[in-house]
């Protein structure tokens, strides 16, 4: 079953509170919602809150893994998504033509992903009923999970998946964050 609108609002507020209230600097939070089909439990997009990266230093250019062609592709997709949301008659939003950062793209792509129980970092956390904490570019790059490797390419240094009621909460950061019992609680 899909999350009702009311639940979606509550979920959004809780994800936002989790990130904004944390001592660590998280870039995004995603709730992967569990559902059941003939093959078993599947984790799919529930909701997400994107905070973005800390602004470090004035005028410092953000390192990006994207080429000019990749940027064009991202902007094109964003323009199409924007028309889908606001209606094709709406004027094009100027913000859509701003560079789409690597972490923004990673977050957007996440909306299309799902995990069967036991697969990927969210699937592992659910299957083992235990948090998965991957910190450091090397650990992300050598992960069995494609999503973790992709995250590293897009500049993430930490991805955490914590099992919770009806799903898994995932947090990602461009900073190196070591395990915190504070957050778990």
């Amino acid at each position: 079953p899909s999350v009702s609108l009311l639940n979606q609002e509550t979920l959004q507020q809780r994800l936002q509170a989790l990130i904004e209230g944390a001592r660590e600097s998280w870039t995004y939070a995603i709730f992967w919602q569990s559902s059941y089909d003939y093959s078993g439990t599947v984790l799919g997009w529930g909701d997400g809150y994107y905070k973005g990266e800390e602004d470090k230093g004035k005028g410092k250019l953000k390192a990006s893994a994207s080429t000019a062609a990749e940027q064009e592709h991202r902007k094109k997709v964003l323009r199409e998504l924007n028309s889908l949301i606001s209606g094709s008659a709406a004027p094009t939003d100027d913000a859509v033509d701003e560079e789409v950062t690597d972490t923004e793209w990673f977050f957007l792509v996440s909306m299309t992903q799902s995990f069967v129980n036991g697969s990927g970092l969210p699937g592992q956390a659910l299957y083992n009923s235990s948090p998965v904490w991957v910190a450091g570019p090397d650990r992300l790059a050598s992960s069995m999970c494609e999503r973790a490797r992709q995250g590293q390419v897009f500049g993430l240094q930490t991805i955490v998946c914590i099992p919770s009621a009806n799903g898994v909460v995932e947090l990602g950061s461009t900073e190196l964050i070591t395990q915190s019992s504070d957050l778990m609680n």
Binding site: L84, A95, M111
Partner: peptide, 26 residues
């Protein structure tokens, strides 16, 4: 672009709105 289910559509709308705010305030 494949059709976007409701939960994703709501998240997407929110993401685009917040992005607009970030770009405007930059």
């Amino acid at each position: 672009i494949p059709s976007v289910p409701q939960a994703r559509k709501a998240s997407l709308a929110r993401f685009l709105e917040k992005r607009k705010e970030r770009v405007m305030s930059a």
